[in-house]
Amino acid sequence: MHFHKYEKIWLSFGIVSLIVFLSVVGVSAFSQNHTPSGGMDTIDPEKVNETAPFDNPGVTQLDEDTYQVAIVALAFGYNAPDLRVPAGKEIIFKVTSTDVVHSFTIDNTKVNMMVVPGRVTTKSYTFDEPGKYLILCNEYCGTGHHMMSAEIEVY
């Protein structure tokens, strides 16, 4: 098998680029905790409203610098009353669904979480800028999918 000299140069460049990409995202993900949303917690999708923390959805202050926001997604809206969180503090979002698959996506942030029934999706995020952020569902969930939205206020 014969590789032209230039093909060797090209493939070396390509492979090195790919390794650099992987290293950048890998190091940032695992050493600085920038992993995408996820989590291994499970929940009974029919008992969501009786299971903590979703029995009391909304914002809870965990300690000085950490807040937890529990949200129940359902066709076609979010059960998440009074979403107001401070800027500059770590916000831990926990989302689950009582029916089909949804997403919990906050516009212009890294919060873009798939919400799967039977599972709890977790994402930690710190808002820099105060303001009112649009929350929307970007996974098809039925006729009202494009109406499924909410708002979170950062103060």
Binding site: H2, H4, Y6
Partner: peptide
């Protein structure tokens, strides 16, 4: 495996520049 073919008999300079254009698009 293949030593008969020499790199000098095909001029692929344009190819090298072209693939690097692709590479730059990817990286950018």
């Amino acid at each position: 495996m293949d030593k008969k073919q020499s790199d000098h008999d095909v001029n692929l300079k344009g190819t090298l520049v072209s693939v690097f254009f692709v590479g730059i698009v990817i990286v950018a």
